[in-house]
């Protein structure tokens, strides 16, 4: 756990920087915006204490919010995602549970497992984010559509990021 700390700190800084400096300036057809920073919460070790999960979720969200001028919005969505993470992990766990010392990354549990897990996490985050952003169910279908499209783009970016990390012997 201790030796993972500098690595995750590095991940955190890189992911937030990539998010606020690169991805936030990308415009896909006006409103599609990939939110890669959720990868930080997704790949935290299994042994991360639960209180730390939500605290890190809040910190990550608030930092992204500060750069995006949407104070509270991303924090709320990321805290919610961090809150549901233990439930999702336990429902996706292998028959004999997760092994000690492993992390929820494709290198440890395969691409198929990681794909299911990350898609669900990203979808939960994006649905929460876009519905709080709209704050009404008036344009329900268009908001739903927006979150689905954005989720797909985010997952694509997450997999691109995972490919990068593999070459550097699993930074993420």
């Amino acid at each position: 756990m201790i030796n993972l700390l500098p690595r995750y700190l590095f991940n955190f800084i890189i992911l937030v920087l990539v998010q606020v400096l690169l991805l936030n300036n990308l415009q896909f057809s006006g409103y599609l915006n990939p939110y890669l920073y959720v990868l930080f919460i997704i790949t935290l070790p299994f042994s991360t204490p639960k209180w730390m999960l939500v605290a890190l979720g809040f910190t990550t969200g608030i930092i992204v919010d500060i750069f995006m001028n949407t104070l509270g919005l991303h924090a709320a969505a990321t805290v919610f995602m961090a809150f549901v993470r233990p439930f999702i992990l336990s429902s996706f766990s292998p028959r004999d549970g997760y092994e000690m010392g492993t992390r929820p990354i494709p290198a440890d549990y395969g691409f198929g497992w990681f794909f299911k897990y990350s898609v669900l996490m990203v979808a939960i985050h994006h649905l929460f984010l876009f519905f709080v952003e709209a704050f009404s169910f008036e344009n329900f279908l268009s908001t739903l559509w927006k979150s689905i499209l954005s989720s797909i783009v985010s997952v694509v970016f997450i997999f691109i990021a995972m490919l990068f990390s593999k070459r550097k012997s699993g930074t993420i």
Binding site: K50, W51, V54, A55, G57, F58, G61, I62, D65, L71, G72, L73, A75, A76, V79, F80, A82, F83, P86, V132
Partner: peptide
């Protein structure tokens, strides 16, 4: 504590959102 902490952070977030 997990749920209460979650609630706490959500309340803080929504406070920010509305303000």
């Amino acid at each position: 504590h997990f749920f209460l902490l979650f609630l706490f952070f959500e309340i803080v977030s929504f406070y920010f959102i509305f303000n």
